[in-house]
Measured scan of single mutants.
Amino acid sequence: MPVRRGHVAPQNTFLDTIIRKFEGQSRKFIIANARVENCAVIYCNDGFCELCGYSRAEVMQRPCTCDFLHGPRTQRRAAAQIAQALLGAEERKVEIAFYRKDGSCFLCLVDVVPVKNEDGAVIMFILNFEVVMEKDMVGSPAHDTNHRGPPTSWLAPGRAKTFRLKLPALLALTARESSVRSGGAGGAGAPGAVVVDVDLTPAAPSSESLALDEVTAMDNHVAGLGPAEERRALVGPGSPPRSAPGQLPSPRAHSLNPDASGSSCSLARTRSRESCASVRRASSADDIEAMRAGVLPPPPRHASTGAMHPLRSGLLNSTSDSDLVRYRTISKIPQITLNFVDLKGDPFLASPTSDREIIAPKIKERTHNVTEKVTQVLSLGADVLPEYKLQAPRIHRWTILHYSPFKAVWDWLILLLVIYTAVFTPYSAAFLLKETEEGPPATECGYACQPLAVVDLIVDIMFIVDILINFRTTYVNANEEVVSHPGRIAVHYFKGWFLIDMVAAIPFDLLI
C-alpha cells in the first residue's frame, strides 16, 4: 500500500533555474538572501570558489559584500557603492579590487542584480563577478574607477581610450546646418538635424578633445543650467548677453562664444560640459537660429522629431539603469545623424518603425519583477520565466494532490484497515475457520451469522477504491517536481505499489 509523501509542494524551481543557467555559462556568482541580516550568502558556485580561493563552506553565510576579499588596494568608495546597491532595488555595476585567499590582487567587475517577489519586494541578490585585470595590471588604489561605466561593446579594446569628441564640431553647429540641408533625401539625416562627426583615429590627448566618459557625465550638469543662461549661451556672438549692473557675465554663455574659444586653444572642462549641455537642449539648428531671432517656433511634425517616441515608452518600462547606459552608448555611435529632440514631445505622434532597438522591449506582467540581467542570462521568455513566489501546480481535472487534506485522511483510514487485516486475518484463519468446520452448517442466516465476513468484505472494497484513487494521485519525481499527468501517474504506480495493492485487495476469504 503506498505511503508516498512529498510535502515540499507547491515547489518553486526558480532558484534552481537560475543556478542551472548560470552554471551553463561558466559564470562566477553568488546568491544572497536579502531578508536576513547583512544579506548572507546562501549559494556560491564553483567558479566563484576558484576565483577567490575560498571553499564553499568558508563563503556560505558570510555577508555578500565580500568584505573578506578586501585588501589594501580595495577602494572604500567601491565598497560603499556595493553596500548601497544592496540597500536599493536597481541593478548596478561596480569595479573593485579584490584579494584572493593567497593574497593576489585582481580588479573585478561586480554586477549586483536584485530579484523581487510578486509584491515588488527584493528577496534575493545575485552578484556576478568578472575579472577585468590581474594584480600586475591593477593601478594605484588612489585612482577611482567606479565613477565610470563599463566599456562599450562596439569599441575595440585597444581603442576604448582613444575615443574623442571634438569640441569644434559642437561649436560649428550653425555652420554645418547648410551642408545638412543640402544633403536632402540623399543624406542619412532628416531636415533640421545636426550631424556630429566623431574622430576615432588614435591621437595624443589634446586640450581640444573630450573623453567619452566626460560626455556621459554632461547629463548630470544640465539641471544646474538655468533657462535664461541656456538661451544666452545659444544666442551666440551676435547678441551678447546682458548683465545687470554690478553683475558679471555668465561664464556659461561665454563658453560657447566662437570668438572667445578661437582665441585660446584650450577650454576648461567645466565650460566644455556646460556648452555641450546647452546645445543638447535645442532640438535642431533651426531652433538655434530661432533663439537668435527671439522667436522659438513649435517643433515640426516630421520623422526626426518622432524618433524618440518609442524611446520614451522603453525608458518607462525599463527595469534597470543598464538600459540608460545602453541608450547613452548607442546615442554616441560615430558617423550617424543625431536628432536633438526633447523627450517631452507630442504624445499624438505616431511611433516610426526603427531597425535598431535601443531599449529592451516591454516586459510582460509575469516578468515585471525580474531584472534585465536575470532575463538576459536565463534566456527565457515571458511565458517560461515565473515570478519568485509559491505557485500552485497546474493539475488535470479529477486529480488528487498527494499533500491535500483528503489524501491525508484517506491514508490514515487505509492504515487502520491494514492494521485490522494484519490482526484479524490470522485470527480468523486459526480459530474461526476451525469452529466453522466443526459446527453445523448455517446457510440460512447468511452474513448475519458471520459479522467478521462483512467487515472483511468492506475492507476489500476499500482497498479496491484505494487502488483507483492512487491512479489519480500526484507524486514527486526525482527532481522534486509534482507530477499531475494521468499517464505518468499510471506508469509510476504500475512500477511501484500496484502489484502489492492488488494482492492485498483480493478477497481470499470469499474465494475459499
Results as ranks from 00 to 15, higher is better:
P2S: 06
V3Y: 09
R4H: 15
R5P: 05
R5E: 14
R5H: 09
H7L: 15
A9L: 06
A9F: 14
Q11K: 09
Q11E: 11
N12I: 05
L15W: 12
L15M: 08
I18P: 01
I19N: 01
K21G: 06
F22A: 13
E23S: 11
E23L: 01
E23K: 01
G24F: 09
S26E: 10
S26R: 13
K28P: 13
K28W: 01
A32M: 01
N33E: 10
A34Q: 05
R35P: 09
E37V: 07
C39P: 13
A40S: 14
A40Q: 10
I42H: 01
I42D: 01
C44Q: 01
N45R: 01
G47W: 01
L51G: 01
G53R: 01
G53F: 01
S55E: 06
V59I: 11
R62K: 10
R62I: 01
R62M: 08
T65A: 08
T65Y: 08
C66A: 03
C66E: 01
F68A: 01
L69T: 01
R73D: 08
T74Q: 01
A78N: 10
A78T: 04
A79P: 01
Q81Y: 08
A83W: 14
L86W: 01
L87S: 07
L87I: 08
G88V: 12
E90W: 13
R92Q: 08
V94Q: 06
A97F: 15
A97N: 06
A97P: 01
F98I: 05
R100S: 04
K101L: 01
D102V: 01
G103V: 01
S104D: 08
C105G: 08
L107R: 14
C108E: 01
V110D: 01
V113I: 13
V113A: 06
V115W: 09
K116G: 07
N117M: 15
N117H: 09
E118H: 11
D119H: 08
G120N: 15
V122Q: 05
M124G: 03
F125S: 05
F129N: 01
V131M: 15
V132N: 14
D136T: 11
R148E: 15
G149Y: 06
P150C: 06
P151T: 08
S153L: 06
P157R: 14
G158T: 06
G158F: 13
G158L: 14
A160W: 15
A160N: 14
A160M: 11
K161H: 05
T162M: 15
F163D: 09
K166S: 15
L167C: 15
A169M: 05
A172I: 01
L173G: 15
T174N: 05
A175M: 04
A175S: 14
E177R: 09
S178C: 06
S178D: 06
R181Y: 06
G183Q: 14
G184H: 05
A185G: 14
G186H: 14
G187A: 15
A188Y: 05
G189H: 06
G189Y: 01
G192D: 15
V194M: 01
V195D: 05
V196G: 01
V196Q: 01
V198Q: 11
V198G: 01
D199M: 01
T201L: 06
T201P: 15
P202F: 01
P202V: 01
A204G: 06
A204S: 04
P205A: 15
P205K: 04
S206Q: 15
S206Y: 05
S206W: 05
S206C: 15
L210K: 01
L210F: 11
L210H: 05
L210G: 06
L210C: 05
L212H: 08
V215P: 06
A217N: 06
A217Y: 06
D219H: 11
N220K: 12
H221N: 06
H221C: 13
G224Y: 14
L225F: 04
G226P: 07
G226L: 10
P227M: 13
P227W: 05
A228D: 06
P237L: 12
G238W: 15
R242V: 10
S243C: 08
P245Q: 05
L248T: 09
L248N: 12
R252I: 03
P258F: 08
D259T: 14
A260L: 12
S264H: 04
S264V: 09
C265R: 12
R269N: 11
R269H: 12
T270I: 08
T270D: 12
T270K: 04
T270Q: 07
R271G: 11
R271A: 12
R271K: 09
S272Y: 04
S275Y: 08
A277M: 12
R280Y: 07
R280L: 10
R280D: 07
S283P: 07
D287I: 07
D287M: 07
D287Y: 05
D287K: 13
E289A: 11
A290M: 15
R292A: 14
A293V: 08
A293F: 15
G294S: 14
G294W: 04
V295E: 15
L296H: 08
P297H: 15
P297M: 05
P298D: 11
P299C: 12
P299E: 07
P300N: 14
R301W: 11
H302R: 09
T305R: 12
G306C: 12
P310Y: 13
L311A: 12
R312G: 11
S313K: 11
S313V: 07
L315G: 12
L315W: 03
L316S: 05
L316Q: 14
N317G: 11
S318I: 07
L324S: 12
V325S: 12
V325K: 12
T329R: 12
T329K: 06
I333G: 14
P334G: 08
P334R: 07
P334T: 01
P334L: 01
N339P: 14
F340K: 14
F340C: 07
D342A: 04
D342G: 15
L343A: 11
L343K: 05
D346R: 08
D346S: 14
D346I: 10
L349M: 14
S351C: 13
P352Y: 08
P352D: 03
T353L: 11
S354N: 15
D355T: 14
D355Y: 07
R356P: 12
E357M: 14
E357Y: 14
I358T: 05
K364E: 12
H368T: 14
K373R: 10
K373S: 04
T375V: 14
T375C: 11
V377F: 06
V377R: 03
V377Y: 03
L380T: 04
L380P: 01
G381H: 15
G381E: 08
G381W: 11
A382L: 05
L385W: 07
L385E: 03
